[in-house]
């Protein structure tokens, strides 16, 4: 009896697990003439907060649509897409990873820039180390930067190079994406991090933000594009257009992003 019970329980759990795993397959519903169906949007980590809200607004405007997100470092997402793990829309934190997909012949149409972003230094609340500029970073403790393969790491390297500042690699902890880079300051003991201004804004009182003047700053560009492998090209295109529309732009601005140009 007990064994039968166990088998039944395990079977039930399995069935439930499969249902939970597959029930929400973004490709399950197909588009019809009206906008509908599911799209999967692969988007840069820094877009997590605004895109979650934009997704809600988009589905409110198009009731038959379901938007799912796959957030990660743009470089990691581009690699996934090249490896065949495709989605409907790719929203990158730089042009390079879009070009990479273009070279691989994976894009449907041209990429459209929908936002830009600045870099900022974040420190512990109250800025106890008194960091005022990039030049103060080499003398501080452990600095958190994005990995060099990730857009935010490349931008930070550009900014540091332009300012002729070099932080010894032995004191740099590298995050897999901008969120991990930020977390090293908010939740661990890194003294400062270079992240996007939007992330600095999102972190609120958990950090102090040191604004980088435009002359010392690097502007990140965010292009979005529909992928050739999209199962739901019409909804995907509508989502990209929505990003550039008034509502999408208002939300992005709220979260600390700059207008496309």
């Amino acid at each position: 009896m007990i064994r039968l019970h166990t088998v039944a329980t395990v079977a039930l759990l399995l069935v439930f697990g499969l249902w939970a795993a597959c029930g929400n397959d973004p490709r399950a519903r197909r588009a019809d003439s009206e906008l509908g169906g599911s799209i999967l949007v692969s988007a840069a980590t820094s877009l997590t907060a605004p895109f979650t809200q934009i997704g809600q607004n988009f589905t409110r405007a198009h009731r038959a649509v379901d938007v799912q997100f796959n957030f990660g470092a743009s470089s990691a997402l581009a690699d996934q897409i090249v490896a065949g793990n495709s989605s409907d829309v790719f929203a990158s934190a730089d042009q390079a990873n879009v070009t990479k997909l273009d070279d691989a012949g994976l894009l449907a149409g041209r990429a459209a820039v929908f936002a830009r972003n600045r870099l900022a230094i974040v420190t512990k609340p109250g800025n106890p180390e008194g960091i005022r500029s990039l030049a103060d970073l080499p003398a501080a403790g452990v600095i958190s930067l994005c990995d060099l393969a990730v857009p935010c790491g490349k931008y930070a390297a550009q900014a540091l190079e332009a300012a002729k500042v070099s932080v010894p690699e032995g004191r740099v902890t590298r995050g897999q994406n901008v969120r991990a880079t930020l977390t090293a300051v908010t939740d661990s003991d890194a003294v400062a991090a270079i992240v996007y201004a939007s992330d600095a804004k999102g972190a609120g009182a958990r950090v102090a933000t040191v604004v980088l003047p435009d002359s010392k700053n690097v502007i990140a560009v965010y292009p979005a594009v529909t992928l050739k492998a999209a199962r739901n090209a019409m909804t995907a295109k509508a989502f990209v257009a929505f990003l550039r529309g008034a509502k999408g732009q208002r939300i992005l601005k709220e979260f600390g992003f700059l207008a496309p140009a």
Binding site: A73, S144, A149, V150, T173, S188
Partner: peptide, 24 residues
């Protein structure tokens, strides 16, 4: 990666290097 961070030559162990070098 959570507790020790990811500093090359100091706290970057094999699995961390695998994960990060996968892209580079």
């Amino acid at each position: 990666v959570t507790f020790a961070g990811n500093i090359a030559g100091r706290t970057q162990t094999l699995p961390l290097a695998v994960y990060l070098r996968l892209e580079a």
